[in-house]
Write a protein that binds this DNA or RNA. Structure first.
Lengths: 193, 193
DNA sequence: TGTATTCCTTAAACTGGTTCAAGTAGTTCC
DNA sequence: GGAACTACTTGAACCAGTTTAAGGAATACA
């Protein structure tokens, strides 16, 4: 099993001894996804917390008019999935699928609880992960409140330069909260500069 | 010191023994705020994580055109402040002020680190707090992407029924990402129904 | 090689929400 | 009681971003 990016993420915040690392590895379920393959679908209860090791995933909501709204993209090292469904065992309102051939590691909810009870060190790791993610989400909300679509697009390009290779423009538009047509206009305008 | 709401929040997720509770209480700084008094201002590094015991606080960003954008409101039991500034010792881009006479409890950053090291049980508490807050922030992003201003307003009223007593409409408008004028129109329309 | 499919672009008409400007009502404070 | 704020409302003009519809380019597959 290749857990390179996960172990790298963990080592930034806590130090595991051999036993802890072995136990962690033992509860991970590796999974390969083909492009466009789903790992979670609307209506199901999310049983896994997902860590991306290779490729790119997208989590999105489909509204009553069949428009998709992108909650997040996730590349190597990122945790993803519907955290609400995972935490509260509620049916998910999101779908998560691979935007490219990908490799992920899954932690089943029960094993996650057990991991946290057995090795409280992981409480610290996930506290920091959630704390940082919260900061990022607060920033995104603020950008949506205070910036124009064009500014948000430029900020996105600068903040996530590697995502363009994986993500079709229509999904970037969705993430930014605009239509693909309007993103196209913005791009033309920026090209002209 | 009155730490009722904080202890209530903690007891939902972890159980403290007498020593732990005593230590926690010993590092809290109680503070009274008058209406419109600031507890954090733009440009400063946030040295405290804030828990509200009574009243209501607002954290907001002021853009280059002097428009305010509300990141969050916080009432009894809620944690608030600029988490990025607190975590990374970066100058804050937000201000936090009291919307009514309020009482808060402050944890200085150094004491917070010490608390987490000495009693790892608190890692669990804050992991859960951040995890739940993250879920709420994800929902807010999704609403902003997929709902009209009118729908967002109705959702807000339903989700935070107690906030209307503290929060002027212009700040609710800001939180929703619209102008006070447009919120006024929405309200008139809803009254007519 | 043709045809289906999906993505991106372009343009014209449109609309949800903003801006600007003015007016009303409640509060504070001398 | 009046002056000065601040919050909220109203309406007309305006604009950022949507909608609709159509065409072009790339990939996929029979």
């Amino acid at each position: 099993m290749d857990a390179f990016h996960l172990l790298k993420s963990i080592s930034k915040h806590i130090t595991l001894d051999a036993e802890e690392e072995k136990y962690l590895i033992s509860i991970l379920l590796p999974m390969k996804l083909q492009q466009n393959e789903f790992i979670e679908e609307t209506g199901e209860v999310t049983r896994y917390f997902i860590n991306v090791n290779e490729g790119c995933l997208m989590t999105y909501y489909t509204d009553s008019e069949a428009n998709d709204h992108v909650l997040q993209f996730a590349t190597a090292g990122w945790w993803t999935g519907d955290l609400n469904s995972f935490t509260n065992s509620a049916p998910s309102i999101y779908s998560t699928k691979a935007l490219s051939d990908s490799k992920v590691l899954l932690i089943p909810k029960i094993q996650m609880d057990e991991l946290l009870n057995r090795y409280p060190k992981f409480e610290r790791y996930f506290r920091i992960i959630f704390q940082n993610s919260l900061i990022t989400h607060q920033q995104r909300i603020l950008l949506n409140l205070s910036m124009s679509a064009e500014e948000r697009y430029q900020y996105f390009l600068q903040k996530y330069p590697t995502l363009e290779q994986f993500v079709p423009q229509k999904h970037i538009a969705s993430y930014l909260g605009i239509t693909p047509e309007f993103l196209s206009k913005i791009r033309r305008k920026l090209m002209g500069k």
